[in-house]
Amino acid sequence: MRPEDPPAQRVVVTSPRTGAPRPRRPYPASREITEQSQLGELYMRSLIRTQRTLGLLVVGLVAGGLATLPLVFTFAPWVSRLQVFGIGLPWVLLGVVVFPVFVLAGWFYVRQAERSERQFAELVERS
């Protein structure tokens, strides 16, 4: 090493910038929900409202439809004298038809309820 050579430059090698804040990862919505933040509450409220509307709608349509029957049978007695395949209409409706209707309504409800839960989960996982 010759003396006229300039002294070697001291290079400071720094560590990665640990002290600086990393760019924020989006705060997962599922944590908003568990931590009861206002946003999480909003998410849950919307899910509960959707499910409640769906449930009341299905019950309301089926039960509401059924509940008109006693009124019809009372105030329009000719309806209850109608015959289907030789059997009185009230017997056919209340003895046979209602049961597949219940299963169909239940199947529709399960499909819709699971769909809205799936959509809710996607929304939460995406954010």
Partner: peptide, 12 residues
């Protein structure tokens, strides 16, 4: 309410 209504696939 979260416990009652949150879907299982959410994993809360």
């Amino acid at each position: 309410m979260v416990r009652l209504h949150a879907p299982e696939n959410l994993g809360l």
